[in-house]
Design a binder for these strands. Sequence first.
DNA 1: AACACATACCTAAGAAATTTATGTATATAA
DNA 2: TTATATACATAAATTTCTTAGGTATGTGTT
Lengths: 112, 112
Amino acid sequence: MAINNELFKGTLQTIILNLLSVNERMYGYEITQRVKSITQGELLLKEGALYPALHKLEADGLLETSTEVVDNRVRKYYSLSKEGEKKVVSKLQEAKEFISQLQLLLNLKPTL
Amino acid sequence: MAINNELFKGTLQTIILNLLSVNERMYGYEITQRVKSITQGELLLKEGALYPALHKLEADGLLETSTEVVDNRVRKYYSLSKEGEKKVVSKLQEAKEFISQLQLLLNLKPTL
DNA sequence: AACACATACCTAAGAAATTTATGTATATAA
DNA sequence: TTATATACATAAATTTCTTAGGTATGTGTT
């Protein structure tokens, strides 16, 4: 019963940056599995969404990569650049505010 | 300093349905102003996003309309259809779950 | 009168982010 | 040998939004 993934829209970059902020170093497939386990299978981060997002974040200079071969399979590890470390702070703040406004609009908490 | 409106994506329908659930009857321009006042100007619901969304919800049978002339200006009032009243319940539940999962992914609350 | 601004509706072109559908390749378990 | 998991990737289509207009009335200002 995974909930509507369309809700990912607009928050995917922030999720990726935060995971890398907490975990220091992750590869793509690992990220999809981490999202799955954290949300107990409720949110599925699809590869068609993830990889282009990772490539964009790297192109924007927020992520750095290094490849490794494990069990004859190539892994591409991502980690935050210095710029990425700054960005994740503002992105998280923005997300917090958005969640707060959304809760107001949906009457999920009393009006301030 | 309105926050990134791209975060609206995926939640706009739910916001509209909920406003109409609380207010019974609203017209488009009124909805844009209500969102502005509730969020103290932080979220701006643009007309180019709102009107197509309203038309889609109506086409899907979730909203009903009636027009009125006030001060020589036409207002198109929207209200929830019976189907819309059912839908708003599931949409709100979905949004609640999404917010919850998002907070987990962003470390904004402790893991369950 | 002229102008700006608020009210009130609308749409079209473009951009951005996602889904869906593939493709490649290796390892492992049935 | 078949399916599933691991691991990367991209292209076409879809959805949703922004940007940028358009029409029209009322009000307040200069």
